[in-house]
Design a protein around this nucleic acid. Structure first.
Lengths: 213, 213
DNA sequence: AACTGTGAAAACTTTCACAGCC
DNA sequence: GGCTGTGAAAGTTTTCACAGTT
């Protein structure tokens, strides 16, 4: 298998989402041009992205929506169920919890941890918030492979070290900090401050035609 | 001014954050090598990124932490105050609201809107949630340039159209959908489902050494 | 005729390596 | 000697353009 870039994977996820909409709408066939328009890229890009994993289309016809959904789910590893732990029972965690697409794509939150005794014992849509003392025990008991880290920066690295030691291999990190992990552990960081600063930069360039300083 | 890429801007934001930590720690000088290690990139990359905007370092010595902070804040447009509106008074909004770095970097939430009558009138740390009917009036009254969109997918495009019509030029979008905006409006989308699927893909590759299908 | 799959070209980004300054 | 700034080289991603299939 050739090496596949991050942006390609992001686009495949996006195509999958669009294809699910099309499938719901009863559309059975789609062209690379159509997918490109809907996803804000080009037809050549769509074909290239897909061709990295096989030949899924029919020349002259396009792609079968349902077949492509199946293929993309397979490529992205979404045919199985993933057990997810949420560390930090704060507002970000709550937001994720309410995000229904989450479950629909096979991500099941199976444990919620917090270090605040006031939060431990609270019920979160059927799950009980556990003390972070119990992290190691619960993670291995429930075979959890993915964790969402939504704790303050100062606590993040220590939490991640414990997660990794307990077998977690994938981490979605909301703490605005650089995390150290072994190379067989994957971290994706969602950094809202970074995005806001990107906006600030872009707007500053757009308005003033002037330079940096 | 040469064209500057998205990844470069992201790294500049990251350098800024690290420099602020260094400054707090009383460090006065930093080398490209040091910044590179802390940000997970290479010394050459750090120097190249910075050199796109000027020559800020001293050969043989490195960079002055405080000077570089000032320069980066200027480059990123963070020397001013940005007025931000939050559309959708749900859990994501609440999370952002509590995010103190936000204010520290000059982003002030000046208005919160929701279409749910039950939420309108509620107080959010001093701000009153307003009906979305009042969006146009409030946005122009308070000269709001940036909006955070945290509404369901089905409502997102309509909200964005109204924001744009009222002068908003930058949007941080949490709705997992592709938004249409005029080319002088900047959108950054934070898509957690996409990130989770990226994790799923990466973990699937890591474990099974086998191919896609 | 319509549309895919794909090598080749173009564009872009990162890394190298070293001249130049402190 | 230590470290930056930067052209040139290497590597990566996107776009082009067209042969090939239905």
């Amino acid at each position: 298998m050739k090496k596949v870039s991050e942006p390609t994977i992001g686009r495949l996820s996006l195509y999958l989402r669009l294809l699910l909409d099309l499938s719901d709408a009863g559309v059975s066939t789609v062209s690379s041009e159509d997918l490109a328009t809907r996803s804000g890229t080009t037809a050549a890009q769509v074909r290239k992205d897909l061709s990295l994993f096989g030949t899924f289309g029919k020349r002259g016809l396009g792609y079968s929506v349902n077949e492509l959904v199946t293929r993309l789910r397979s490529i992205l590893g979404l045919e199985r169920r993933w057990s997810v732990a949420l560390v930090g029972a704060g507002r970000i965690g709550a937001a994720l919890f309410g995000y229904e697409n989450f479950r629909r794509q096979g991500f099941y939150i199976e444990a919620v941890f917090d270090s605040d005794p006031a939060k431990v014992g609270q019920s979160w849509s059927g799950l009980v918030v556990e003390s972070d003392d119990r992290m190691e025990a619960v993670l291995s008991e429930r075979s959890i492979e993915i964790a969402v880290v939504a704790v303050p920066v100062r606590a993040a690295q220590a939490v991640v070290d414990r997660l990794v030691a307990s077998g977690v291999r994938g981490i979605l990190n909301f703490a605005p900090t650089q995390l150290e992990v072994p190379e067989d552990v994957v971290v994706k960081t969602v950094d809202m401050a970074l995005e806001m600063e990107g906006l600030s930069y872009a707007l500053t360039r757009l308005n003033g035609a002037s330079g940096a300083a």
